[in-house]
Design a protein around this nucleic acid. Structure first.
Length: 302
DNA sequence: CGAGTTTGACCTGCGC
DNA sequence: GCGCAGGTCAAACTCG
């Protein structure tokens, strides 16, 4: 009698730590999934908001175009200058491009429009960071710098140096309104594969390229800068973004990002520890082995 | 020593 | 034609 009782206790001692780890992992998984759901919902809301805003912007733009065509004196000196002023529309340039193309469609040859593939990426950086370096996985060679009239901060000119024949150019300049935001304008398409998929970047910046789109996740903690400046029309671009968000790869990426961010957050750790310890106390009071088995099955499940 | 950056000069396009 | 502004060139410089 006494022997069997001792045997049971030792077995219990061996199994309990393992079950505790399973339980911890289960709780962490639940917390992550909840956070992921919340972020995804927020993302969808923001995307919808962006779509509406872009549509409104397009509408206003159209009205402006009609107005300027009636009053030629109001016409800007250059279409480019209006694009540059578009820096004020942080992240709204998807429509910028499409509408400016619409505006110029009567002037520019169609070939040229196809040739010119301009996209813009916004990156949040430390305000103290004065470098004009945007790490996007490609190799760039700086060939010039210029202070432009509409922006006191200098504009840097880069060429893709990975392939000598690569026609892609990049302009990087800080936003007029927010010096902590870097505006990178890409012209053309790379005629070579990306030399290195971006893993991590130096300093406080952290940006990642998903597929070929320059969608970027940037900088200080939870700040996410999405590139919405595809050459397509704004609504298409937004839909495309939604599709990317829905893709399993993106979901997987989000989970990894969330896990990374959350595990680095001391507040989250503390809350999680409190939750785990609380749950433990509760479980120790209420349940026995059977519930632990259920938990272990749960975490081993899909 | 080679590759990359800096920076003043030069080129080009556009409005007046 | 002139002046302005953006874009590019290339010599000098820096760095590993």
């Amino acid at each position: 009698m006494e022997f069997t009782s001792l045997h049971d206790t030792s077995l219990d001692l061996n199994v309990k730590p393992a079950l505790r780890i399973f339980d911890d992992a289960q709780i962490l998984r639940g917390a992550l999934m909840e956070e992921l759901k919340r972020v995804s919902a927020e993302n969808i809301k923001l995307t919808e908001l962006l779509t509406v805003t872009c549509e409104n912007y397009n509408e206003l733009r159209k009205q402006l175009t009609e107005h300027t065509s009636k009053n030629p004196a109001l016409k800007k000196r250059k279409a480019e200058s209006s694009i540059n002023n578009g820096n004020n529309n942080h992240g709204m340039n998807g429509s910028d491009k499409s509408s400016s193309s619409d505006e110029d469609s009567c002037k520019k040859p169609r070939e040229e429009q196809i040739k010119e593939q301009i996209s813009r990426v916004y990156l949040r950086t430390e305000a103290s960071d004065v470098s004009l370096v945007v790490k996007d996985g490609y190799q760039w060679r700086k060939y010039g710098q210029k202070v432009t009239r509409d922006n006191p901060s200098p504009r840097a000119y880069f060429r893709c140096s990975f392939a000598p024949t690569c026609p892609v150019k990049k302009k990087v300049q800080r936003s007029v309104d927010d010096q902590s935001i870097l505006v990178a304008t890409y012209e053309g398409d790379h005629n070579h594969p990306q030399p290195s998929k971006l893993k991590s970047t130096s300093g406080s910046n952290r940006c990642t390229t998903l597929g070929t789109s320059p969608t970027s996740f940037s900088s200080s903690r939870s700040t996410i800068t999405l590139d919405l400046t595809k050459p397509e029309k704004t609504t298409d671009s937004a839909r495309c973004s939604i599709r990317e968000i829905d893709s399993p790869e993106f979901q997987q990426y989000l989970v990894e990002q969330m896990a990374s961010i959350l595990t680095k957050d001391p507040n989250f750790k503390a809350s999680l520890a409190a939750a785990i310890s609380g749950k433990f106390l509760q479980q120790n009071k209420q349940t026995g082995k059977s519930s632990n088995e259920e938990v272990s099955q749960g975490i081993l499940g899909p």
